[in-house]
Amino acid sequence: MALEIITANRLGDGLVIFLTADGWSARIDEAAVSESKDATAALLARAEADAGLVVGPYEITVEQQPDGSLHPVKYREALRTRGPSVRTDLGYQAA
C-alpha cells in the first residue's frame, strides 16, 4: 500500500498540521507514516480524538524520498505544505 499520513487544520489559527507519533506538527516530515489500512484507521482515530484542537482530519498519500522527507502525491496537498503558488511570500514556503 502507498504511504499515508494524517493532516488537519489547527483549530486556533487554521494552519495546516500533521499528526506525529505523539502530537501534531506543522512539518510534514515529522508526520507518523502508515503503511497499512489498519494503521491509517488507528492514526485517524487518534486524530479525531483531538477534535478540541484540530479541524477536519483526513488521510493523504505521500511518497518518501531517499533522504526521508515526505512529499504529498496530490498537488493540492503539496500546496498545503507550502502556501499559495501565486504568493511565495506567504505560508510555510516563506519561512
Binding site: 487544520n9 487554521g14 494552519l15 479541524v55 493540492r76 500546496l79 498545503r80 502556501g83 499559495p84 505560508g91
Partner: peptide, 13 residues
C-alpha cells in the same frame, strides 16, 4: 461560523 463569514480554507481560516 459560516454565518459570520468564517471559512476554513486550504491554508488557514
Amino acid at each position: 461560523r459560516l454565518m459570520n463569514g468564517l471559512y476554513l480554507q486550504l491554508h488557514a481560516y
